[in-house]
């Protein structure tokens, strides 16, 4: 049976099509679920339950405009609307993935990076303003690290992949009680920015936001919650790679597809 993916959205999430198509390409059945459909304010035929799904996808965008801390409003609305269901979803170890603004939401929910191996109340890290103080859209290369995240099994460990970046608040700064080194040691760093020669933690522009340690994506202690700033959902196919006219087949798999396949495979096994 195809795993069912809920692509959560509210006003300002705007990458839902990218992530939905990515999951569909990976063999899942994906549906948009507006946060309002999780409440009694929606007509009953449109009502949805988080726990009816196998995977929760938090898309990129600017939820509620990101006029306060990015992702903060989406997170607090989710907690208000379906906080208990999210907790149960997490306890079940069902996959949750947040890309870009979705990563920011997972941090605001306290799921990433968590504390002492568990979720915490409120954010335990910050995705703060890019070092150059502005939004930028450019390709990023990421090295797949040796991590506890089961979703990246389709990638060669230590190999690098191209995911486009497009964000203003992407510099990952661990909070008190956590550090880049600790996260690396615990196998919680899933992706790190590299340059064309594969060197870790390169300067700008290969590290687009100045994240210490070049951290691009992290997972929780269980490995089932993944958040990353760059967009694997925008490099599912060859033609989405910005340099495909230099020898890539536009019809071939892009670098992002294996990540969605990994999540779908994990959800199928569970």
């Amino acid at each position: 049976m195809e795993p069912r993916v809920a692509v959560l959205r509210m006003e300002g999430t705007n990458n839902e099509q990218d992530i939905k198509r990515a999951f569909e390409a990976a063999g899942a059945s994906a549906s948009y679920v507006h946060i309002k459909q999780l409440t009694k304010h929606a007509p009953s035929r449109l009502r949805e339950e988080v726990l009816d799904y196998d995977v929760l996808a938090f898309p990129g965008g600017f939820s509620a405009g990101d006029y306060v801390r990015a992702g903060a409003i989406f997170a607090s609305r989710l907690e208000a609307v379906c906080g208990d269901a999210l907790e149960a979803f997490y306890e079940d170890r069902r996959p949750m993935v947040g890309i870009c603004n979705g990563f920011q939401v997972l941090v605001e929910l306290g799921l990433l990076p968590g504390e002492n191996g568990a979720p915490r109340k409120g954010p335990g890290a910050a995705l703060t303003m890019n070092e150059n103080d502005r939004y930028e859209c450019r390709p990023s290369l990421l090295r797949v690290e040796d991590s506890v995240c089961p979703f990246v099994e389709g990638y060669e460990e230590g190999g690098s992949v191209m995911f486009p970046s497009a964000h203003a608040e992407g510099r990952f700064v661990p909070g008190e009680g956590s550090s880049v080194d600790a996260l690396l040691e615990e196998g919680r760093v899933v992706f790190r920015y590299v340059d064309r020669e594969g060197r870790v933690d390169p300067g700008y522009p290969w590290n687009p936001n100045g994240s210490p340690g070049g951290i691009g994506g992290v997972t929780d202690a269980s490995g089932t919650v993944l958040g990353l700033m760059p967009h694997p959902d925008r490099s599912v196919w060859g033609f989405q790679h910005p340099d495909w006219t230099r020898g890539l087949d536009p019809e071939e798999r892009g670098d992002g597809l294996a990540l969605f396949e990994g999540i779908v495979a994990y959800a199928g096994e569970a």
Partner: peptide, 8 residues
Amino acid sequence: QYDHTVRA
């Protein structure tokens, strides 16, 4: 500073 890749 503009997004060129959104909508994939």
